[in-house]
Design a protein around this nucleic acid. Sequence first.
DNA 1: TCGTTGTTGAAACAGTCGTACCATATACTC
DNA 2: GAGTATATGGTACGACTGTTTCAACAACGA
Lengths: 186, 186
Amino acid sequence: MGRPADPARRERTLARATDYVLAHGLGGLSLRPLAEALDTSPRMLLYDFGSKQELVAAVLAEARRRGAVRLAEHLPPKTGSVQERLRGIWAWISADERAPFVRLFFEVHADGLVHPENYPDQGEAITDWFDTLGAAFRDVSTGPDDTVTPTLVMAVVRGLLFDLTATGDRHRTDRALDRFAELLKQ
Amino acid sequence: MGRPADPARRERTLARATDYVLAHGLGGLSLRPLAEALDTSPRMLLYDFGSKQELVAAVLAEARRRGAVRLAEHLPPKTGSVQERLRGIWAWISADERAPFVRLFFEVHADGLVHPENYPDQGEAITDWFDTLGAAFRDVSTGPDDTVTPTLVMAVVRGLLFDLTATGDRHRTDRALDRFAELLKQ
DNA sequence: TCGTTGTTGAAACAGTCGTACCATATACTC
DNA sequence: GAGTATATGGTACGACTGTTTCAACAACGA
């Protein structure tokens, strides 16, 4: 009895809110401008998500879900040399289309350093790449439980992403990755 | 004639404000709490710095100045193997005492990605390590103008710092750096 | 039609923000 | 003392924040 609930509205809003956050960042996020960009009202955002904090949590979960999907779509190729695979990962993650994700990634990390209490699973966001990467670089690992190789590979990727996003120097960062690939081969 | 100006007050305030920002981060910085912690008033902060934006700029400049001094005090030892030098840099930069600097570093970078217009010299903060590092790792460089080696070394350090600050896993990150040092030696 | 449940708008609340204005106090020269 | 420049307190403004409150409307079953 009574009017039927419309769960699709929340999903629609969540999707568009995630777009908005990816485009504008988390830092200055405010309900009123967000609502206006989404053709809704702060009233409805709170109605659907309870509070701003819960909305942000939902948006971050959605962003991570999207990232995982995109990654799964891309990673399959396990063929080729170590260099080719490494270059493939770098080319993908450093492409302009990934820039909003990368930006949000860095923003969340930085905010997590100041307010760790808001990000109870910050560590997982780092280490959950390891299963995937460990498999992709099994031939240069020291063993099946080797976490050091994925750690180093991801550190290089993240460090170069940091450099690239700050300096915009594509040529230099590309060459540094090539250099690392050569070192790894030996 | 008239009351003499007291430039020392501004300097004192700047020093304490920098301490405060290093302790509390840039994100939620607000004049009133800052002033209270510094035993002054928002009125005086604006009197000395003109605006919040200029205050922040002054604080960031001061923080960078301090970091450069600390680095200069530490780096001199150019002796030892590549591994020893690399481990020395890592041990120093990843020490707990450097945590506030590292945190602010990541925070500024993330904010710079969202508001590039506020950080006209973001790139320099990355590349001005190169002269120092290029000299320190000359023996593994391909030439005197090699920017690839410093780029890769700093990427590893920053990437592992990212990992360490997010996961707190000292053991794994230390071992990853050792692994990189071995690769670099060959 | 009525009761019930979900949805939505408008407005207000209590708070914080950076900043400006106005008066006053302080420390100096003459 | 007067004159003058710096230093400071107090206060208020206008714009914003997340959130709440109250009312109305919409869609359904009985």
